[in-house]
């Protein structure tokens, strides 16, 4: 389920990046300082960062593997080092 959501969201966001909206107009200038298309791309970057954060912290499919590795390393080194 997580995998499917991640895939759909990733493709959707990539499509929004390479087929940007709004096109061919700078209007409106948001708060008088940021043209709308640039604002849209800043929002896109924020959305993509949120997407990566969701993968890293909510889904985190490597969590169990990393934990197992860390436990194993800690066992080898007598309980020291290697943080998750």
């Amino acid at each position: 389920m997580h995998r499917t959501i991640a895939l759909i969201l990733g493709v959707l966001l990539a499509a929004l990046m390479v087929y940007p909206w709004p096109e061919h107009t700078p209007e409106p200038i948001i708060l008088g300082v940021i043209p709308a298309p640039l604002f849209a791309w800043i929002v896109w970057v924020a959305a993509f960062i949120a997407y990566v954060a969701w993968i890293c912290y909510r889904w985190d499919p490597y969590a169990a593997i990393v934990q197992r590795f860390v436990d194993e390393q800690a066992g080898r080194s007598g309980g020291q080092e290697v943080q998750r």
Partner: peptide, 20 residues
């Protein structure tokens, strides 16, 4: 013009690659 912003997108897009 602002199309140069695509490079910011490339550093965002590397996020999932760095994770996986």
């Amino acid at each position: 013009g602002i199309g140069a912003w695509i490079q910011v997108a490339t550093t965002a897009a590397v996020g999932p690659i760095i994770y996986f």
